[in-house]
């Protein structure tokens, strides 16, 4: 039985890695721009459609298509920023939330109009693998690895480049960054574009393990919120820990309790972390863990 437990936890970690991959762009945008992008899941949904059509028309390996979809979504993110986000970047939270809600309508119904309601799925490209008497799905394993690579690259970008320094400075305090000569609106533009490129990278992965349909975004945006809050706003490495925590919670709840009780459990966790974080107690609690992970550099 212990093998079953270990296998379940490992599977939860792999699925959680995919959650982290979906959420990392959201946490970056949230952390740097202080904008909650409710349309994050809708961007993912569009990325899944693009991935599906790249796969079905070009016959390209879905994981390779990350190299097409992500750059495409970088541009898409930049355009969205110019048209929609920039005008409200300095406005109230109300405005920010509802502009992104407006984007959801546009994306979802455009997808419905263009592609119809039938679900699509990239199938038959990858199967399962066995190791130590346990079975895993290749898609989730590679998805997890892509998440690790993406987070590592993002980490390098943020902590080893000039641009990263500026992004972090803007995140810390836009006013001071501006005084130091940082063009914060250029930083916002790049941050949003990178964030959307990251969710673009998740598209080909999710399109292989879930159905692509216009309403799929709602499931993933809620999961992404949970990952972002548990991992810490703008904390890209935190996402890689939070995703698997949710994955494990779901997997264990489904195995030992009831599949319907997984979400209530992680929502309680989510709520508790939000409150503890606000009162500072969470930081005390996790201080040692966090310093171990982020060394002396702190979060974004």
């Amino acid at each position: 039985m212990v093998e079953v437990l270990i296998q379940t936890i490992l599977r939860g970690i792999l699925t959680g890695g995919v959650y982290a991959l979906v959420a990392v762009g959201l946490t970056l945008i949230f952390g740097v721009m202080d904008v909650v992008n409710f349309a994050h899941g809708a961007y993912l949904m569009l990325a899944m459609y693009v991935s599906f059509y790249v796969w079905s028309f070009l016959g390209l390996d879905p994981f390779l298509s990350v190299l097409i979809v992500a750059p495409l979504f970088f541009l898409f993110g930049a355009v969205s920023y110019y048209l929609v986000i920039h005008p409200i970047i300095d406005r109230s939270m109300f405005a920010q939330i509802f502009v992104t809600v407006g984007l959801i309508w546009v994306f979802e119904h455009l997808a419905l109009f263009l592609f119809g309601p039938s679900p699509r799925r990239i199938t038959g490209e990858y199967g399962g693998i066995r190791a130590f008497g346990m079975a895993f799905e290749e898609v989730r394993l590679y998805g997890f690895l892509i998440a690790v690579v993406v987070v590592a690259l993002l980490f390098l970008l943020l902590y080893r480049t000039r641009l990263g320094l500026n992004i972090r400075a803007t995140s810390e305090s836009p006013e001071i960054a501006q005084l130091m000569g940082v063009d914060i609106y250029r930083i916002y533009l790049l941050t949003f574009a990178i964030g959307i490129a990251l969710v673009g990278a998740a598209g080909p992965v999710v399109a292989q393990l879930d159905s692509t349909e216009p309403t799929i975004w709602s499931y993933y945006v809620l999961i992404a919120f949970v990952v972002v809050v548990l991992g810490g706003l703008g904390n890209v490495t935190g996402a890689l820990i939070a995703g698997p925590i949710i994955g494990i919670t779901e997997a264990l709840a489904s195995l030992y309790l009831d599949p319907l009780l997984g979400p209530p459990i992680y929502y309680v966790l989510f709520f508790a972390v939000l409150v503890l974080r606000a009162t500072g107690q969470f930081e005390e609690l996790t201080h040692s863990v966090r310093t171990a992970f982020t060394a002396d550099k702190g979060g974004v």
Binding site: F30, D34, V36, M93, I97, L222, F225, V226, V229, Y267, V268, F270, F271, L274, V275, R277, A278
Partner: peptide, 9 residues
């Protein structure tokens, strides 16, 4: 934002 997210949860 955090309050909004907490109430969604």
């Amino acid at each position: 934002h955090y309050f909004a997210l907490a109430t969604i949860a």
